[in-house]
């Protein structure tokens, strides 16, 4: 298992490197740059600016320096568009915010989604079952960028219960709506998947064996059915976290949380190479680590996979 983790990390590193190189050239070879504006700068000034950011050197040298600085000093370089801020500052300020409500959103997805799916499977065709089907359709119709305005309309503008945006040091009132708006559709997905896989497991031969042993239904559910029923959910969580990261960009923008999503979009507008690249790396590292954790969790549950690692 330890070897496996190491192997996975070793493959993640070149993958991220390839992504860096790809993104780097994609941005650099595209027309325009951070210093292109309506009024062109005088050539002398331009030369100075380029020199200051090391952009007068050949591209591959710049790339080399960039990677070297990340590897040796964890330094993502200065921001091109935000004066006196380094990419490190931006990450240090925004990343905790995004992580915080992202974490609560994941908690919301799992803590509500899994029990709901289990109840719906056990009480087939009951109120809970219909609630879940409704929720699945609801989440399909109201993706986060429709749900979020709706929630603000209700909870902020109509009832004045929750603040419609901002962060304020991460007080809970400021976390609720971002976390729910981000998580709802995945919560529905988790519930639906859990329900489906639990129904399938409950119909499987080894559950029939367990029933033939005379075990009470509760024991069968907890001891025999739950683990295998949650495996598909676990697999599903990988892409879900990736989707949630995508969603978080929107949440950061819409709720003005101050998370890195806003910086990323701003960076795209102002062609801020270092911010875009730095944040892209952070996003990738995040998803790779989450996927690794999920894989290890999967292996821990499924003995067959465990042996193959």
């Amino acid at each position: 298992m330890f070897n496996y983790s190491v192997r996975r990390l070793l493959t993640a590193v070149p993958t991220i490197l390839i992504l860096i190189v790809f993104a780097f050239y994609l941005m650099r070879l595209a027309p325009g740059g951070p210093f292109t504006s309506e009024k062109p700068l005088p050539p002398a000034v331009m030369e100075n600016v380029l020199k200051r950011y090391g952009m007068d050197e050949p591209l591959h040298m710049q790339l080399f320096t960039y990677i070297k600085n990340i590897v040796c000093c964890f330094d993502f370089g200065p921001s091109f568009s935000q004066k006196d801020r380094s990419v490190n500052d931006i990450i240090a300020q925004g990343f905790p915010v995004t992580l915080t409500y992202g974490f609560w959103s994941a908690v919301f997805v799992l803590v509500l989604g899994i029990p709901l799916g289990i109840i719906a499977a056990l009480r087939h065709n009951s109120f809970w079952d219909y609630l879940m089907t409704g929720l699945a359709i609801f989440s399909q119709i109201f993706p986060n960028f429709v749900l979020a305005p709706l929630m603000v309309l209700l909870f902020t503008l109509s009832w004045g219960l929750l603040p419609g945006g901002g962060w304020n040091g991460g007080q809970w009132q400021y976390i609720v709506m971002p976390a729910i708006a981000l998580g709802t559709s995945y919560m529905a997905g988790v519930a639906r998947l859990t329900r489906g896989s639990l129904l399938e497991v409950l119909n499987s031969p080894f559950i029939r064996t367990a029933r033939a042993k005379g075990l009470p239904e509760r024991t069968i559910l907890i001891r025999h059915a739950l683990k295998p029923a949650l495996l598909p959910t676990l697999t599903y969580m990988g892409p879900v976290f990736v989707y949630m990261i995508t969603g978080s960009v929107f949440i950061d923008v819409f709720f003005s949380t101050g998370g890195i999503g806003q910086d990323f979009i701003d960076g795209a507008y102002s062609r801020d190479y270092s911010v875009l690249l730095g944040l892209a790396i952070i996003y990738c590292v995040l998803t790779f680590s989450i996927n690794l954790v999920l894989d290890l969790l999967y292996a821990w549950i499924d003995p067959k996979v465990r042996d193959s690692l």
């Binding site: 031969p205 080894f206 009470p216």
Partner: peptide, 24 residues
């Protein structure tokens, strides 16, 4: 019925590949 199952009447199932819980 649960007190009869396995205690008084037990069953051997057809496919040993699927009759055992693979996660236990």
């Amino acid at each position: 019925l649960n007190k009869v199952r396995a205690k008084k009447i037990a069953m051997i199932f057809q496919d040993p590949m699927s009759a055992l819980n693979p996660y236990m």
